[in-house]
Design a protein around this nucleic acid. Structure first.
Lengths: 206, 206
DNA sequence: CAAATAAGTAACTGTTTGGTTACTTGAATT
DNA sequence: AATTCAAGTAACCAAACAGTTACTTATTTG
């Protein structure tokens, strides 16, 4: 029999579950496969997490809090204006590049019409960082740096969607454009271009 | 026994399959459910399409050609400069709004790392419209309408990704921003804003 | 150190799944 | 009207699936 270590087992299950759910989604992932990858008996998954759905919810929660941590760091830096915008885009690009599981799980959630997301507590999902970004852009307008006519909610939406789509649509876009957009240097170019695009729209020229 | 009508049966299968695959993906979709929705015997699916995989490929192909048709119409119009950009964005928004199955199937493909996409012939996927758009932006630069320093491939990428992410991430974004972004008027605002964003970057100011 | 408890195991169950087999029935061709 | 063949049907199969049961073994604690 294997050495006993509940902490290690739980972590092994969560790690394997994250990989499997990210790779195949809730319905595609197999409990047997998660057990095999975690190198534990399947019974332990049910002992620790109840059922497949609860396990998935834990993985979902964990991924959202990873994102939240990064955003909180961004908010704490308390930069503003052009520097903040550059910071946000760079941070999102880097986070999404380093967390493909997060990207996938978000996509699965959208395909499930946000079914499991709805069950999570709002505080984790309705991240306050968004409000912070919007307020910062309003401040930029007040300071005369950013154009006064822009809609700050819309531009924050554009920033987030533009960053995300570079990762979520890597395969179809690569095929469509005939270049491998999963490569690090391609991502770096996209980051650069996205920053220029957003800033050129925001900054008041004179 | 039911009235015989192979054409009608085939179409019923394809329609049901498109719905099921869009809703649940290749692995989540059930052949039995497709048969039930098409109101035919499951055996007929295997008679007409071989297996589940071939049926999926047909659905994939059909969706891509729908998109291609719309793009070809866009190319034929032969508009240029600001009008073309407005046209492209508006057309993509409308198409994606009216074809949620297309949006979903593209997402499934990305989650499958483009596995089934790879098997399709290149001519259907590497749409020539992209090259047309890039060339048109180059022309705009030559005509002195668009900024000479912009990268036309990057801006076309940005246009497409920005349009798409508004639909692919509707549920997670709605939750994140606390407003229902699936509504028609929300989409209309996004279209308007995206157009302004892209044009403000492209147009040479003076 | 023995009793209690938590950690881990193997084998099983009822259901669902993609795909098949053996068959019947409708309609066009002769 | 008999033959032929495509269109359609029902019942089935082996494998895969989420979840369970009954059990064993390691570790803690009184």
């Amino acid at each position: 029999m294997k050495e006993r270590n509940p902490q290690k087992s739980k972590l092994a299950i969560l790690t394997a579950a994250e990989f499997e759910f990210a790779e195949k989604g809730f319905f595609g992932a197999r409990v047997d496969e998660i057990a095999a990858k975690a190198d534990i008996n399947k019974r332990m998954i049910y002992a620790y997490f109840g059922d497949k759905e609860s396990l998935y919810t834990q993985v979902l929660l964990h991924n959202y809090s990873k994102m939240e941590q990064v955003e909180n760091r961004l908010v704490k830096e308390n930069s503003s204006g052009v520097k903040l915008i550059k910071n946000i885009i760079s941070t999102y690009f880097d986070f999404l590049y380093n967390n493909p599981s997060f990207v996938n799980i978000l996509m699965w959630e959208n395909l499930n019409k946000g079914y499991y997301l709805k069950q999570l507590e709002n505080q984790v999902i309705e991240r306050k960082s968004i409000k912070h970004f919007i307020a910062a852009i309003e401040q930029g307008k007040a300071d005369g740096i950013f154009k006064s006519e822009i809609d700050s909610l819309q531009i924050v939406l554009s920033m987030i969607t533009t960053c995300f789509a570079n990762f979520s649509n890597q395969y179809t876009l690569s095929k469509l454009f005939g270049t491998d957009l999963t490569q690090k240097d391609a991502i770096e170019s996209r980051k650069q271009h996205t920053t220029e695009l957003i800033l050129s729209y925001l900054i008041k020229e004179n």
